[in-house]
Design a protein around this nucleic acid. Structure first.
Length: 500
RNA sequence: GUCCCCUUCGUCUAGUGGUUAGGACAGCGGGUUUUCAUCCCGCCAACAGGGGUUCGACUCCCCUAGGGGAUGCCA
């Protein structure tokens, strides 16, 4: 039987790292085993589901380059792949369980249930309290229950969890897991009063109908696994293999959530993370592939993925390490591709005029030539515009002290700046080593280090002590502009020198 | 409260009875270098604790502790 796995998110929020991790592992497992990866939208919570989140889901995975073989947008033989479009199915299957005596109508209202829950809160100094539904409706005569339901009385359908005995299943990662039925959630709701299924029913019915062979989901689902097994048993179906993935935690050690910052994939994207880095990093959260390697492409991962290389313990999401991966992939990009990736960030940041302005022809070619200068200096794509701004507009004059090399003073800085500027017309800036050699010689004559000779010029040209390489910058900027900036800086230094 | 899962450097991990417990990120210290960065080299740093089993335990078993999760007409 060939492998069929699914990612079954509910569109009730933005896609975040946790979801991507689950999807990625399912995808990798399918690819590694020549199986199918299926997307199923679990939009059964009609108050929280929204189109906006569906769109975000598509955008996210489209960006990441993770594609499903079957799904709402691409179709497939087991559709529809949206649960709200399968509405009729669930009542039908729930009724089947009722008819078989495995489930029952429950007429308890929300008010009674919430009162019951708050009563169960452990009081100060009190011992064990029981939680969950008290099974009040379980013993209603079935004919009586049917009559009330048909009379229009609001109701849900609940699964009968056996009062005694145990339920066990074999988790592909965790091994044998056995539960006392008394510890399973007491008679969970299968069909809500609005006629929609709960996750539990929909997930079991659809996994069966869609012939899912392996369910890989986060470990937070372990407690509901026994109930699902009881359902498969009640339906007389063979359950899929289960594999509960370790959770991804925030730096505070808790389940990843909005509180942890930029966990929505969207935000990583706008901050300038590249997809390869995100995929590589997330794939390594809670799993390993081969020894001695850090960098894996999606294709590598798809080939190497194995369940027995997954870790059981939860993993903490580390932004710093992700940043390292990002730098690695940025540097690995070919210049042309990196330029295309950087361009939107430059446009948005207003590098070419007002934010949103496209580059002119000249700006475009300048930008292309400048990209190699920042490539090794980027952790995120979004950092590029600020680092290159001095090439596109004159930077504000730096404070005087910025110009002054260590242990020197303003007059000396002005002098070195003049020497450096005077040397420039004699340099062939397309030959960096030669230009550098000229400067080195001149620095020796002037009795200072090369760095000291370059620093005032660097600050004059780029507006900062920290900048991309200076000779290349000067070449891109052109001599006239550079000399003008140098002159302006000299004037400022002179003024500072004459003031006490 | 109850139930379940987990436990190797700060973090991600390798390890499947005999290793100086390896790698990566971070940190620290050097080197290359026109600044910054890249790159290179080095250092620091872990088997939660206690019992067993065994000639021998990070590896197997038990207990304790700690962490996490679940306990919804949300998924």
């Amino acid at each position: 039987m060939s492998v069929r796995v699914r990612y079954a998110p509910s569109p009730t929020g933005l896609q975040h790292i946790g979801g991507v991790r689950t999807a990625l592992f399912n995808y990798l497992f399918a690819r590694a085993n020549g199986g199918k990866f299926i997307l199923r939208l679990e939009d059964t919570d009609r108050t929280r589901s929204s189109e906006e989140y569906v769109k975000n889901l598509y955008d996210t995975f489209d960006w990441l380059g993770i594609r499903w073989d079957e799904g709402p947008d691409v179709g497939g033989p087991k559709g529809p792949y949206v649960q709200s479009e399968r509405f009729g199915l669930y009542r039908q299957y729930a009724e089947k369980l009722v008819a078989a005596g495995k489930a029952y109508y429950c007429f308890c209202g929300e008010d009674r249930l919430s009162r019951m829950r708050s009563d169960a809160e452990p009081e100060e100094g009190e011992g064990a309290a029981s939680y969950g539904y008290d099974r009040a409706c379980r013993n209603i005569e079935s004919a009586e229950a049917r009559r009330r339901a048909e009379a229009g009385e609001a109701h849900v359908i609940r699964l009968k969890i056996p009062l005694e005995g145990t339920t066990k299943f074999r988790d592909l990662l965790l091994g044998e897991i056995e539960w006392k039925n008394a510890d399973v959630s007491p008679d969970p709701v299968l069909l809500k009063s609005d006629g929609f299924p709960t996750y539990h029913l929909a997930n079991v019915v659809d996994d069966h109908l869609m012939e899912i062979t392996h369910v890989m989901r986060a470990q937070e689902w372990i407690p509901s696994a026994p109930m699902h097994m009881i359902m498969y048993e009640a339906f007389g179906w063979t359950p899929p293999s289960l594999c509960h993935l370790p959770m991804v935690l925030g730096s505070d050690g808790h389940k990843l959530s909005k509180r942890h910052g930029a966990t929505a994939v969207n935000e990583f994207r706008t901050k300038g993370y590249v997809k390869e880095a995100l995929i590589n990093y997330v794939a390594m959260l809670g799993a390993s592939y081969e020894d001695g390697r850090d960098l894996y492409s999606l294709e590598d991962l798809a080939r190497l993925f194995r369940i027995d290389r997954i870790n059981k313990a939860p993993a903490v999401f580390d932004y710093v390490k992700l940043e390292w991966f990002n730098g690695q992939y940025i540097r690995a990009k070919e210049d042309g591709e990196l330029t295309e990736m950087l361009l939107p960030f430059a446009v948005d940041a207003g590098l070419f005029g007002a934010p949103g302005t496209r580059p002119s022809g000249g700006q475009d070619s300048l930008f292309r030539s400048a990209v190699p200068l920042v490539k090794e200096r980027l952790s995120y794509l979004s950092e590029a515009p600020a680092k290159l701004a001095y090439l596109f507009s004159e930077p504000p004059l730096a404070p005087v002290e910025e110009f002054i090399p260590k242990k020197l003073d303003a007059p000396r800085a002005a002098e070195l700046l003049a020497i450096a500027a005077a040397l420039l017309p004699d340099c062939d800036l397309s030959d960096i080593p030669a230009s550098e050699e000229k400067f080195r010689t001149k620095a020796a004559e002037a009795g200072c280090k090369l760095g000291d000779l370059m620093m005032p010029l660097r600050v004059a040209v780029t507006g900062s002590r920290v900048s991309p390489p200076l000779f290349e910058s000067i070449r891109l900027l052109g001599l006239p502009a550079v000399l003008a900036r140098a002159a302006k800086a000299r004037a400022a230094l002179a003024a500072a020198g004459s003031a006490p």
